[in-house]
Nucleic acid binder design. Structure first.
Lengths: 346, 346
DNA sequence: AAAAATATAGGAATCGATTCCAATCTAGAG
DNA sequence: CTCTAGATTGGAATCGATTCCTATATTTTT
């Protein structure tokens, strides 16, 4: 048994602490801490000695201890409404890259479409003492929302959400202008019965799209048939059954706008089931479809906004907030990209 | 200014600590801690009093302090190779649900396809003292991998990866059997030139698919044309250009197997560009395509494995590991689902 | 050369919890 | 009625870092 632990002083299961480094370098805890956190007023000799020992021992600071004592974690929490939506993952990715560039790490938590889980997630981030939060909320009328925004104790940036009675940073897209363009373009081609299927009213994008939709109809002197509006959930099944109903009507719409991935999927399935071809039998515009689906559906017209820009901008607003800036709102423009699926005139 | 802070004793920016609760309830720190962590040997009177005060003050424990002292965080880190792959998000979602059911929370970190970032992510999870790690590795030959597996200080579960020289838990899919079935089915229809386009060799799924592919060719007494094999990256652009090359050959393949999302996208684009229709001009089988794309492409044959099962199983293995179980490997079966895209006989 | 200013290093308090140990209290046994 | 075992509670140490304060070493100024 002699020499068992001779090679390394580390016992299995024991983790190297700053104390081990201090002993190894024959220095005080405070000196080691100063070296490792890059403080000034440290002699070159001490710096080299400590760094060498820390390296040799494979020292990695305990983030919990650091955060506890110093109050900062250089960690940002990203609360995502639904991790399976590829749009969110693109935004999250871009955001994380920007944060990383600035020395922050990002942890992602999924709310799985539930305001209850979202509430738990906010609580968890508070307990974890993250330095900031970026969130794509499940709903703006969540009963927990106000409390979570008020008690966060750190800067928050919302993604595509508006909470009017609170002064809070947000990155929002100008959906309405893109939708306006799209509708106008369809009207020019002779369409007058245009269906809009989109998420529920308790989030900003829906309301904002509706705004552009309404304005376009006004400017074109067209009535909006109330049954052409389906506002009530991002659910693909909902969009599917609603589209089927619309298609079976005597005065079926000649054009469809799909708000979000769920609507896109549901409508597509309805078309497929009825053997309807986009761009031929009916005009179709996808709102906010993801770049990666566009690779497949290269012929689908879309109202586009850049998820990368959105993610980066969110990171930037948050970083500014961390430096003490007042809450601010940043707007990402959208644009109507006309492709085959909406081109055929009626 | 009178009465400014009268309603609540909380100062702005100050967070309620266990000490505040102790003072409010006129009890010792230890008693409060015992109540809040559900220890036995606490009188009913004390329990009620402390809980009431904690509730009133809106006390939320500092997770960093808890973790520092107790050594457990009830947090699992999920390291994901590429967050934009919908297959991974489905797995992560299922995994997170199972962990949550067991009182654990999960934080997701994206490696963005880079072994360097993956290495940083492992380091971060170590510093954070998570209780366990679930990972879909970027590569099995990452220079940092061995170190990260050895120094994790917690149970690890790998997703669809094999690291043979380490005893470590994993959930892997039996890709080869599904691929075998698929190839055999194609052979029966008269195909003899079957192309396989898939990711690089440094991850298990590729090798495992290749295994099934090879075995099927042997059993069918067919040669594998080496130029029909494209093993070299999940990149859609790579798959695209390679497919174009194949299609331009004089003896072009009559069937394509696409391994993973990237290959699927690249090949689809090549088909589209050459106006080739799947199931008519050429047979096509998608390996591991995501349930959500299947909604669109209801007619595409696929080798399917259940991502939900995979995620849940990973969570279960990890939880068992936390309770002291030895590392174990769990296999998820795949099945060939024949649909229109591979049905037409040649 | 003595005094003042500054650079460097060490000691101890602290962050907010958990947990061990000892003290007190209660209840049941003898 | 006394003694002992067990239930409760409080006090203090501890986890691993940071940071403030003080003591010494070094340099600069007069």
């Amino acid at each position: 048994m002699v020499g068992d632990h001779s090679g390394t002083p580390r016992k299995l299961g024991h983790r190297v602490t700053i104390r081990d480094v201090a002993e190894g370098a024959d220095a005080a805890l405070s000196s080691v801490s100063r070296v490792l956190s890059g403080h000034p007023h440290v002699s070159e000799k001490m710096r080299i000695k400590v760094q060498k020992v820390a390296e040799e021992l494979g020292y990695e600071p305990n983030l919990n201890a650091q955060t506890l004592r110093s109050g900062v974690s250089r960690t940002i929490g990203f609360v995502v409404r639904d991790i399976n939506n590829p749009l969110f993952t693109l935004i999250a990715q871009a955001c994380e890259r920007e944060l990383r560039r600035n020395g922050y790490s990002m942890i992602l938590i999924n709310s799985d479409g539930s305001v209850e889980i979202e509430n738990q997630n906010f609580s968890l981030l508070r307990k974890r003492r993250v330095d900031g939060i970026i969130a794509s909320l499940v709903a703006e009328d969540s009963p927990y929302l106000r409390k979570n925004l008020d008690s966060a104790h750190c800067p928050i940036v919302l993604l595509d959400r508006q909470v009017s009675d609170r002064n809070i940073s947000a990155v929002i897209a100008n959906h309405s202008s893109g939708v306006y363009e799209a509708v106008m373009s369809l009207v020019k081609l002779g369409h007058s019965k245009i269906a809009l299927i989109t998420g529920s009213n308790n989030i900003y994008p829906t309301r904002n799209r509706l705004e552009g939709f309404t304005k376009a109809h006004q400017d074109a002197n067209l009535e909006i048939c109330s049954n052409l509006l389906a506002v009530g959930g991002f659910d693909a099944d909902y969009a599917f059954s609603h589209s089927l109903n619309l298609l079976h009507q005597k005065s079926a719409p000649t054009a469809f706008l799909a708000g979000g991935v769920g609507a896109f999927m549901g409508i597509s399935r309805a078309f497929k089931k009825n053997k309807i071809i986009m761009g031929k039998d009916v005009a179709f515009v996808a709102l906010d479809t993801l770049s990666f689906l566009e690779l497949f559906f290269a012929n689908i017209s879309t109202v586009y906004r850049d998820p990368v820009e959105m993610g980066r901008e969110a990171a930037i607003l948050l970083l500014e907030g961390l430096e003490g800036a007042q809450p601010q709102v940043s707007v990402i423009e959208t644009q109507f990209v006309e492709r085959d699926s909406s081109k055929g005139s009626i």
